[in-house]
Amino acid sequence: MLSSALLSMGVDPYLHDSIIVNIVAYAQSIRNLVSHMAAGMVFPLRARIRLVTMHVRNERVLIDLATRESMIENEGRGNGMIPTTEISIKALKTETILEGESCMICLEELSGGSEVTVMPCSHIFHGSCIIRWLKQSHVCPICRFEMPTCSQ
């Protein structure tokens, strides 16, 4: 059933098994957590850390899939994603934010006092998130501001 749902969404069949394994493992972990909580048991820190780690890994898989699907979709239109130049990426500024916002790539909260990377259009992101993005696409994921490419 999951495989046919993934196929209908256009996900590469090569990735089906690994995605299904991650979904099943994540569902089992959630089920265990709920049963422990219902029984009034204190959930051990090691298990909570494992759940968080698994959740982050699953989010990265989903972000990779979304990026891959976007690239495939754009290639069909003749306007494939073009990476930003390395020099432009290295020139990005970092700053410390005062109040919390969200990184619009990973959707994780940026708490006050966090160091962020600032695009020339003033949008902020986790440094690792925006660098990874710019190595695949030369546009801001929020406003489509265009960064320099090798072809410019």
Rank of each mutant, 00 (worst) to 15 (best):
S3W: 08
F43V: 14
I23A: 05
T117G: 08
C129I: 04
S111D: 13
S137R: 10
V52T: 14
I23K: 00
S111N: 14
A47P: 04
F125C: 00
A39C: 11
V34C: 13
L6N: 00
R68W: 11
L15S: 14
R48V: 14
E95T: 06
A91K: 07
V52Y: 15
I23Q: 05
M71R: 11
S35A: 12
D64S: 04
S88C: 04
L45H: 15
R60G: 03
M71A: 05
S29M: 11
Q28H: 09
L107D: 06
L7I: 04
I20H: 01
V118W: 08
L51S: 12
G40E: 07
F125P: 01
A5L: 03
T84N: 03
C150W: 14
S102G: 05
H123I: 00
S18I: 06
L7C: 05
M41P: 12
L62F: 14
T85E: 07
C143F: 01
R68K: 08
F125V: 02
P148Y: 06
I23T: 04
D12M: 02
Y26Q: 02
L33T: 12
S102T: 11
S29A: 10
M9C: 00
C143P: 03
E108Y: 15
K93T: 07
V56C: 12
C106P: 09
N74C: 09
K90M: 12
V118G: 05
T53F: 12
N74T: 11
K90T: 08
A47I: 13
G127N: 03
R48F: 15
I20L: 00
H138K: 07
E75H: 14
S111Q: 15
G76M: 01
M54S: 07
K135R: 14
R46V: 12
L134D: 05
C143H: 11
I87R: 13
G113V: 13
D17C: 00
K135A: 10
V42D: 13
L65N: 09
I82H: 15
R132E: 07
R57E: 07
R144I: 00
L98Q: 12
I19S: 00
